[in-house]
């Protein structure tokens, strides 16, 4: 009986550790998750800048200021003019309006 109780407690402890959000790298803490998202956004913005230079930047420089309200019309205009792909459009969006 004592052995069964010990086994139950050990299993419960293992499960508790396994479910802990701190220990598992597959389930990062909110702070880690936020850092990962920030890093991903920064990478996308950098890639967006590269695509801007490779496509739009071949003819002109970026406007000095562009608001989120304006960015969709600008990008659709460039999608037609510079034959951007949907992926280019999304990445350049991250660069122009991060």
């Amino acid at each position: 009986m004592k052995g069964r109780v010990t086994a139950f407690l050990a299993t419960a402890a293992l499960l508790a550790c396994g479910l802990s959000p701190v220990a598992s790298p597959q389930n990062p803490a909110p702070a880690q998750k936020s850092a990962t998202v920030t890093r991903t956004t920064a990478q996308q913005s950098k890639e967006g800048e590269r695509r801007f230079q490779a496509n739009c930047g071949r003819c002109h420089n970026a406007p000095e200021a562009i608001s989120p309200r304006e960015v969709k019309a600008v990008l659709q205009h460039m999608r037609v003019r510079a034959m951007l792909s949907a992926e280019d459009e999304q990445l350049i969006l991250k660069f122009l309006a991060p």
Binding site: R69, K72, A73, H77
Partner: peptide, 9 residues
């Protein structure tokens, strides 16, 4: 929508 605002450039 908000993102569909026409622009004058």
């Amino acid at each position: 929508g908000q993102s569909d605002t026409p622009i004058l450039s």
